[in-house]
Design a protein around this nucleic acid. Structure first.
Lengths: 255, 255
DNA sequence: AAGTTTGTTATACGAACGCATAACTACCAC
DNA sequence: GTGGTAGTTATGCGTTCGTATAACAAACTT
């Protein structure tokens, strides 16, 4: 009857194996609140056998917990990332979280840092796969930034969750500023190269302003394409982005 | 000793009057958990007199509760918008929320709708105060969209909170799509007028693409200016936005 | 002025939460 | 094989949460 909170919210998710289901039932034992707490564990036969487990390395466990945390936040927002939901998703019991993170807040912070570094690293790594010609390079960079897999509802949800923290928490804001400036710096370098390749002047004040505007354009298109995937065709967003950059720079980036 | 959740998070906020403080203490009565629940209320003298109150109209109460909800979300995210915090902020006790909204979820939905309609209405009303000349009109519209008071960390926090819901909830997504298209439509009309005033062709396919790009540019600049107010000077963002629009449209919007 | 209505307060309840800790067992050294 | 260690599970605790409902009182009716 009472259901103000989603009980067993993930019980029908595809990743829930039978073992996890048993865990979920098992983990709910603190709700049963038995008057006699069954302290005679020695002589009492256990109805449910103790869950078997394997010892994983510390890095593997931490990574699994961080991934599970991000999954929970992406799916249900920060309030859905409870220690029980995270543990269920990571395939462990909730007590283990305390073994690797002294507090849940610390786990969330680690997850956020993992997310941010992953995004900037992915962006940097993508540069290597871009064509060498500066104009085609810029066009590819711009097009990729507004196409899948960069455009992704899950990433968008995580980004929105972190933005809430950014406006409130100074440390978060500093981290966000760092990653923002890093991305904008990449874009500015590409713009400078493209202008030079076209034999156009590349005044630093001008490229800075172009990078600010171009970055905002990419951010906005990324958000709208991720949040409203049905409103645009993928190639429409891509063509719009590249066309806008052509107008901004006064260059023809593609034929 | 235990403080994993912010108890009395707003107890030092300036809007907390002494009366509210008493309410906060009073409202915590369900923690005392007296063994005998003091049912003899008739013969028992009340230690704390019953809080006096005034009957407000339904609209006033609903508006106060909605405002309080938005304040809570803006300050501490969705998880900070508990019924107790909302009621404290609205100057009522928590039971009253149930009298106007059958569930907290309904209150949050009403708050979100109020936020969205307020934003779009403000944007539409601002059109009336703009200059009549189409080019100056577009320039003013663009500049205002990336300057205070539109640029505002509180609005940004609320927007980020709602975006989390947008990617998850279909009804939210439809509402977001509506308001997005409404704003983009305004911008497209301004762009069309500006192009015509300059004697330039205004092909619908072209103005649509310009509106998509221009909207994304404004969104991105608004987000970055709101989230990182220290990175930019206000007039830098403004000048960047107008300059970018000049490049996009191939027009001179200001001298 | 007394009675009625209903907006509002006060209190209680069960569920879920983060955290703490005891019990257990997989794995390693020897 | 036989401990020993520590990674992991199982369980409990106290708090806060959303919701439910009884008690009260401000405003309205007559």
């Amino acid at each position: 009857m009472r259901s103000y909170n989603k009980l067993g919210e993930g019980s029908d998710a595809p990743f829930i194996t039978p073992e996890f289901t048993r865990l979920a039932l098992c983990g709910a034992a603190d709700r049963i609140d038995t008057p006699e707490p069954m302290l005679a564990t020695r002589s009492c036969v256990r109805m449910t056998p103790r869950r078997s487990f394997r010892r994983e390395g510390e890095e593997a466990r931490r990574a699994a917990l961080i991934d599970a945390t991000l999954d929970c936040i992406a799916e249900g927002g920060p309030q859905a990332a409870t220690v029980r939901a995270i543990a269920l998703r990571a395939g462990v019991t909730q007590g283990l979280i305390r073994h690797y993170f002294v507090t849940k807040e610390e786990l969330v912070a680690a997850a956020h840092e993992h997310l941010m570094t992953g995004l900037t690293e992915a962006s940097a790594a993508a540069l290597d796969t871009l064509p060498a010609d500066p104009l085609a390079r810029l066009a590819s960079f711009v097009g990729n930034a507004v196409s899948p897999p960069v455009v992704d509802p899950r990433a968008m949800a995580l980004w929105a969750a972190s933005m809430q923290l950014v406006v409130r928490d100074q440390a978060m804001r500093q981290g966000h500023e760092r990653s923002y400036l890093a991305f904008r710096g990449q874009l500015e370098a590409l713009i400078t190269d493209a202008l030079c390749a076209a034999g156009r002047p590349a005044d630093p004040a001008m490229t800075r302003r172009l990078a600010i505007a171009g970055n905002a354009l990419l951010d906005g298109l990324w958000i709208e394409a991720s949040a409203l995937p049905d409103v645009f065709a993928t190639d429409e967003i891509r063509a719009t982005a590249i066309g806008a950059f052509e107008s901004l720079l006064g260059l023809k980036l593609q034929e």
